[in-house]
Every structure is written in C-alpha cells, then in structure tokens.
Amino acid sequence: MSIADIQAYAYLVGTVIAVFVFYNYIVYLYRSEKRGEKDHEKFGKLALDDDITSKPLVDNNPEAKNEKKEK
C-alpha cells in the first residue's frame, strides 16, 4: 500500500468519524433539551444581560472569586 492509499483511507475514516460526531452532537443538543437536562437557548441571554453587576448564568468558581475580593 502506497502512502497515497494510506492517506486516502485515513481521510475516509477521518471524515466518517467527523460526520458521526457531528450528528451525535445534533442529537445531543436536542435530546438534552427535551429531557430537560440542559437549556441551550438560555445562553442566548448572555448577550442581552451583560452588565458587570448582573449575575452570571453559570458562575465560574464563585468561592475562589469571593475569597480574593475579601482580602
């Protein structure tokens, strides 16, 4: 098998995997929302409610932040 053949097969396998992952992602997006595990649409509000004083949708490590500020 020449290098070109290996590359062709690698390309095929890579593309199939990429397509598989991509469709899985679509299923994941919609299914997790249907089951109520995750609401993706709420992230759209990130652009609307973006004052520095407004409460984060998902807080990034809240305890550590508070500690730092209190010092």
């Binding site: 992230f43 990130l46 652009a47 984060p56 949708l57 998902v58 807080d59 990034n60 490590n61 932040k65």
Partner: peptide
C-alpha cells in the same frame, strides 16, 4: 478570570 463560565457563541 471570567465570572461567566459559559462561553457565549461570539
């Protein structure tokens, strides 16, 4: 150093 954990699409 972000407060908002989720990265907005932008």
């Amino acid at each position: 150093i972000r407060r908002e954990k989720t990265l907005y699409i932008s």
